[in-house]
Design a protein around this nucleic acid. Structure first.
Lengths: 203, 203
DNA sequence: CCGGTTCTGTACTGCCCCGTCAATAACTCG
DNA sequence: CGAGTTATTGACGGGGCAGTACAGAACCGG
């Protein structure tokens, strides 16, 4: 009975994510989204609502994928938890540069652009930051259980510190600070964790 | 002979800085700037050029003031260098919240918004980040001279790490992460510096 | 008091943008 | 094969935007 859609909702959202990440919220017009997704303006409105609704949906889509990725990178057995943390900290340095299209973290970008005056976006962004911090804290706890990190350390503070560092590296990388400096800073931060003698003598 | 200006260039630039920080580049119209500064559009064009020129000038103005402030906070005698570093790291946590108008670092904001496709802005931003990193590195060196930090440590990496952490805290604070968590993360980062036994036993 | 020079405000133009609407196309069930 | 339902397209209107142009106001030396 009904005419079927000719587009895949997921694909459209991913294109919209790229567009918003490239141009920001205020800098992206509906025509841009229309061009990026291949959908006409009418179809966009019919299927996704107005510009702000599209934006929130793309933000949700990004968060969904980002959290999947963060889980993949940090969840795992206790005995390699410290290695996962190490890799994650270092990866932050090259995140912007490795990324195919040189985007940084979308949540970070929009925390600064619309975090103040867009309550819906703020909620989504706070959600992803909180969850990433939680995943990091879990990974720290795993490393503590395995005896690689001081069991008396404040895992929550360490998680927040690592997350903060990663977001900051996005900013500096976008600002033009070189990868060498960021790599050295990341390694410095890792060495500053309360690593146990057991880990240091082994590593 | 000529009719004198009724505005102070500095004051106008400061108002423009506030406006751009509040709304971003794409989100700020010339009417917004006109309203914020009290100048008509004609005066703006005659005195400051077009929108992008105004923006670059405001960015320069911000950078000028930010670097003055960073010098004030970090320059000083060797024996209190470690305390200045400590205070600076902790202050990053409350930067956004302490700030009267809850802005974060302007350079960080625009590194993410226009860093990719605005070469002039990129240069200014890279300049302030590089200089802040240098000031931090100098302060680290001072603390090393005084025996509070391991003299073998890589001061440049530490400076970059601290700067990265500060920019990241702006992002997380804007994203809604609470000040308590950020304070704890900042203290964690400071304790992770290669502090000497001499400092720890004293402090 | 007056003229020249500079500043200031407003009105204007052309463009883009958001959101909507009506007409058209595609599909499936009967 | 036709009718009803839904997707899609392209065009339209109201509004805001950047940048310009022009007329008037303010000032100061003579």
């Amino acid at each position: 009975m009904p005419r079927p859609r000719t587009f895949d909702e997921q694909t459209v959202l991913e294109a919209a994510v790229r567009q918003f990440r490239a141009s920001g919220y205020a800098g992206t017009s509906l025509d841009d989204i229309s061009a990026a997704t291949g959908l006409g303006r009418g179809s966009l409105y019919a299927s996704f609502g107005d510009k702000h609704t599209v934006f929130i949906k793309t933000l949700h889509e990004y968060v969904r994928q980002a959290l999947i990725q963060t889980h993949e990178e940090l969840d795992g057995p206790d005995d390699t938890a410290i290695d996962r943390l190490h890799a994650w900290i270092l990866s932050g340095a090259g995140f912007v540069l490795r990324d195919d299209e040189r985007f940084g973290c979308m949540a970070g970008k929009f925390a600064l652009e619309v975090g103040d005056h867009d309550a819906q976006a703020h909620d989504v962004i706070l959600g992803v930051f909180s969850e990433q911090q939680r995943i990091l804290t879990d990974c720290v706890a795993a490393a503590q259980r395995h005896g690689d990190l001081d069991p008396g350390a404040n895992g929550c503070a360490i998680g927040c510190m690592i997350l903060s560092l990663n977001r900051g590296m996005d900013v500096l990388a976008k600002g033009g600070i070189g990868q060498d400096a960021l790599d050295a800073a990341a390694e410095q931060a890792f060495q500053g964790l309360p690593l146990t003698d057991a880990y240091r003598s082994r590593g």
